[in-house]
């Protein structure tokens, strides 16, 4: 399939990119890996006359630990770079494992974290992880910058809070620390998963002090299930299994699934429960590892 004709712009600063996006309202779109964008253009699901390549903008690149221990991942970082980053491997092994399983190696080599989040694909595993991890995103335009929770950024299926002339600059993940663990589990029959669950657990004095659970793929949009995390709070060693059982029930109740080629809505609720148990167990194990 031929991609409809467009003009390519290659700005080197956020301000320049933002000006370009503003100059062609409704006709210009940021372009990074093109994994989703070029596909939708080929299929005629979206049409843009101007592609603004954001990969030459230094402010959008790189992975680094910031003061305070937050891990900053630039928007144009590819899935493969995250998968292979020693910093990510040390601090967020669950994210490394997740990224290693995104689509296939070719998509991981070109697709970017920022593109994935901005496209707001319902099947985004990184979005599920970042929701559970309490990550924040930074947006920039010619006007300035703003920062918000991933939860506020993902506004719905294929829809984010990003203004047309804004760029996603980076994602920042709260510090990894003793007593904190992350877990992730998914089931995929095709390129896009049937269901994915991510979990972050904080343990203090032998009991779960905080837990966050997020689901993707099984529902319309990646979602944080706030009540589900709370059912785990207070659980410790011996009664962890009961607490997990309650969390599984709560997740199956709260998640809004739908029928599609991956299975019925009921089946996906079932999967969410199983995957939650797996994700929460590995998060707990990581949190309680000496």
């Amino acid at each position: 399939m031929t991609i409809p004709r467009f003009e390519l712009h290659v700005p080197t600063s956020v301000a320049e990119a933002s000006e370009l996006l503003r100059r062609y309202p409704g006709e210009a779109v940021p372009y990074a890996g093109g994994t989703e964008l070029l596909q939708t253009m080929k299929l005629g699901l979206a049409s843009f006359e101007h592609l603004v390549d954001v990969k030459r903008i230094p402010a959008l690149a790189g992975i680094a630990v910031q003061p305070g221990g937050w891990l900053r991942i630039g928007a144009t970082t590819t899935h493969r770079e995250i998968e292979r980053s020693a910093l990510v491997g040390e601090r967020l092994p669950a994210l490394r494992l997740l990224e290693r399983q995104v689509a296939n190696v070719r998509v991981r080599n070109t697709g970017t974290l920022g593109g994935n989040l901005c496209f707001a694909e319902p099947h985004s595993d990184p979005a599920a992880f970042l929701l559970a991890a309490g990550a924040r995103v930074r947006l920039g335009s010619a006007e300035g910058e703003r920062e918000l929770d991933v939860d506020a950024f993902i506004a719905g299926p294929l829809f984010t809070d990003r203004a047309p002339d804004e760029l996603l600059l980076d994602v920042r993940v709260p510090p990894a620390r003793p007593g904190r663990g992350h877990g992730f589990a998914k089931l995929a029959f095709f390129e896009r998963p049937a269901a994915s669950v991510a979990c972050r657990i904080d343990v203090a004095e032998g009991a779960i002090a905080d837990a966050r659970v997020a689901v993707a793929s099984a529902c319309e949009s990646p979602v944080l299930l706030e009540r589900v995390g709370q059912t785990l709070v207070g659980a410790r060693g011996a009664d962890l299994d009961d607490a997990l059982g309650a969390a599984v029930e709560a997740a199956r109740h709260d998640v809004e699934t739908f029928d599609d080629v991956n299975g019925s809505a009921d089946y996906k609720r079932h999967l969410v429960g199983l995957l939650l148990r797996a994700a929460a167990t590995s998060a707990y194990e990581e949190a309680t590892r000496a």
Binding site: L8, G34, T35, R80, N104, V105, R106, V107, N109, T110
Partner: peptide, 27 residues
Amino acid sequence: CDAQVCGACTVLLDGQPVSSCTLLAVE
């Protein structure tokens, strides 16, 4: 497939596999 799913169009770009069907040549 023309959609980065099947891998038939795999070529190496600086040694790394990419789907040439959905990669702009200018890259």
